[in-house]
Every structure is written in C-alpha cells, then in structure tokens.
C-alpha cells in the first residue's frame, strides 16, 4: 500500500501529540521553544543522513509502502516524518522522566 509508512508515522506523531496535549509536555508547554528544539534536532539528523547517503551507506528501500517522493537522492519525504517522530519521542520521554524523578524526590523528602 503506497503511503503506508507515511501514514503510520503520522498516526504515531499524532499519538505523541495527544500525550503532549494531555500533559502539556512540549509543544503544549512552550510552542516556540519546542519548535526551535525540534528544528535543531531535525537539522542535525538530516545532515547526518545526507552525509551517510553521500558516503554510499544509506539507501532508500524498495518497499511498496513508500511514497514516490524524494527530497534528495535516496532521501524519501518519510525520513523527515521519521526524524520528527524520533525527536518528539525523545523530548516527551525526557520531560516526563524529569517530572517523574522530581515527584519521586518530593515524595521521598516528604516521607523523611
């Protein structure tokens, strides 16, 4: 199914957005700051990908799940969505992890 991969990525990003919305983690905490952080991550990962493609290490797959839209040689549009998903997941896990640890710490200091 053409576009299946892009669809799966969009649904996953949507799931993260729901967590974000519910707990005000990233974009729903500080939208501009979140956008700048995500952009930094995307720039770093895209540079890495392009380097590895240029070095002949990465190739676009032949899966029928891919759209036929490449932003650069061997660089399908889905890669942007994938990197967004990776960075967004990292930040949601990190911020929620920070909150969890802070909660444990306050609970512990309240108990002692």
């Amino acid at each position: 199914m053409t576009g299946g991969y892009a669809l799966a990525l969009l649904i996953s990003i949507g799931g993260l957005a729901l967590i974000d919305l519910r707990h005000r983690v990233f974009f729903w905490d500080s939208p501009i700051r979140a956008a700048l952080t995500l952009t930094t991550g995307l720039v770093a990962f895209i540079a890495w990908d392009l380097w590895a493609i240029h070095a002949g290490i990465f190739f676009r797959g032949e899966s029928p799940l891919l759209l036929h839209w490449n932003l650069a040689p061997e660089f399908p549009v889905e890669e942007i969505l994938f990197l967004t998903l990776l960075c967004y997941s990292a930040m949601i896990l990190f911020v929620l992890g920070t909150r969890l640890l802070a909660r444990i710490r306050t609970r512990r200091s309240a108990a002692s």
């Binding site: 990233f26 500080s30 501009i32 700051r33 979140a34 700048l36 952080t37 930094t40 991550g41 770093a44 990962f45 890495w48 990776l86 960075c87 990292a90 930040m91 990190f94 911020v95």
Partner: peptide, 22 residues
C-alpha cells in the same frame, strides 16, 4: 547512535532555550 544523539542534543537545547520565558 540515533537515540543517543537525540538525547545529547535535544534536552540541552530545550533547557537552554528555557532561560527565556514563553
């Protein structure tokens, strides 16, 4: 290396940008 790089860069940028308010 992907998750490792993500966590080396992103939390730091996020917190550094947090020194300014919304």
């Amino acid at each position: 290396t992907y998750p490792l790089l993500a966590l080396l860069i992103l939390p730091g940028v996020w917190l550094a940008l947090g020194t300014l308010s919304n």
